[in-house]
């Protein structure tokens, strides 16, 4: 009998180690990572239960999207539209322009994809942006305005010298095309970052993903973290692209009424929603309209947001209360 007890004890020990070894093995389920560059940004991917081919396919999808919607690519439908003021668009470009125009109407044009002529004037697409002449800003403003875009089925027409730029949606949309590849591959989980946009799909060894939100006041620190799955996260901030001239700092998020950088007390806006391109568009739109107006739109898009003000206050919407963690104080707000 006692002999039997010792055998059972031995078997129990054996089973315990076997169970631990299995769980340890599952915890370290060899994630595969890749670093690449597209859309003028760093692209990072980590997949769980996938292989190198999954990473390659996602990267190809991102590059294909960039080729399709970047105004910088002469072969893209957007370059064709800007060149001829008229083009038959691909389904993806049409979807993004339609969504953008709706958001422009809702923000009284504060979010506007025809802001390109202003962006080019300031040189924010180059290595050397500079303060333009006031008259040139006024001339560029005449070429902006979402009402200059006419959509007729899949034909889009631009009036008054307008040109469109889908950069405000591109990186978020890129995360979504990558996640679509993860879904196709049937992997258990994956995370993709394209510049400041992030897509999280599934789980990593049964756990949600932790997404850090960069501190707009200190690039080496995090403002906090979000524990998320199956969602997209994008951030727009005035700290990203900026330059100084005559002792004044100028950032790249331009006010379509004045032609100068938006000044509304915000330094960054992070948006979380279940559509990649939209998360990116909403981050820009919310930054440009300010916190109060943004809160009136958030319900319609089933989005959540983090607003950080220039005087270092953090506001998060109610849906994030359980998944946002920060060592800083923050206020939970309801739309």
């Amino acid at each position: 009998m006692k002999r039997t007890v010792s055998i059972y004890a031995t078997l129990l020990i054996l089973f315990s180690f076997y169970a631990y070894a299995c769980s340890a093995s599952r915890r370290s389920d060899s994630p595969k990572s890749q670093t690449s560059y597209a859309m003028g940004s760093l692209v990072t991917q980590t997949v769980y239960g996938g292989d190198g081919q999954t990473l390659e396919n996602a990267m190809k999808a991102i590059v294909a999207l960039d080729d399709e919607i970047s105004y910088r690519n002469d072969m893209s439908v957007i370059a064709e539209l800007n060149e001829n003021a008229n083009a038959r668009l691909s389904a993806k470009a049409l979807e993004l322009i339609t969504q953008s125009q709706k958001l422009s109407r809702e923000t009284d044009g504060k979010y506007d994809i025809t802001v390109l002529s202003l962006v080019l004037l300031w040189g924010f697409d180059t290595d050397s942006p500079s303060l333009p002449d006031d008259n040139d800003i006024r001339s560029a403003l005449l070429k902006t305005g979402y009402e200059k875009i006419t959509i007729n089925d899949d034909i889009v027409t631009l009036a008054g010298g307008a040109a469109v730029d889908l950069s405000a949606a591109g990186k978020g949309e890129a995360c979504e095309v990558a996640v679509n590849e993860y879904k196709k591959a049937g992997i258990t989980g994956g995370i993709v970052t394209v510049g400041g946009s992030v897509g999280v799909y599934g789980t990593k060894n049964g756990e949600k993903f932790t997404v850090g939100v960069r501190d707009p006041f200190d690039a080496s620190s995090l403002l906090g973290t979000l524990l998320l799955t199956d969602i997209y996260i994008s951030t727009s901030g005035s700290y990203e692209k900026k330059f100084s001239s005559g002792g004044t700092e100028y950032h790249h998020l331009l006010d379509t009424d004045t032609g100068y950088p938006v000044e509304n007390g915000l330094i960054s806006v992070t948006v979380i929603c279940n559509d990649g391109g939209l998360s990116d568009m909403l981050a820009s739109a919310f930054f440009c309209v300010g916190k109060e107006k943004a809160l009136t739109l958030i319900g319609e898009y089933s989005a959540e947001a983090i607003f950080v003000t220039t005087d270092k206050h953090i506001y998060i919407t109610g849906g994030l209360a359980d998944c946002f963690d920060s060592s800083y104080g923050f206020t939970v707000i309801s739309p």
Binding site: T35, Y37, G40, S41, L42, T44, T46, D127, I191, V192, T193, G196, S197, V198, V200, K204, F209, T210, V211, G212, V213, R214, D215, P216, L222, L223, T225, I233, S234, T235, G237, S268, T270
Partner: peptide, 26 residues
Amino acid sequence: MAACVPAKVSIRITGGTGGTVDGITG
């Protein structure tokens, strides 16, 4: 992780303890 995008050079830390962030927005 940090990257110099114009140079296409990146650095990331693997292994060790602590640090549980999977990706960064911003």
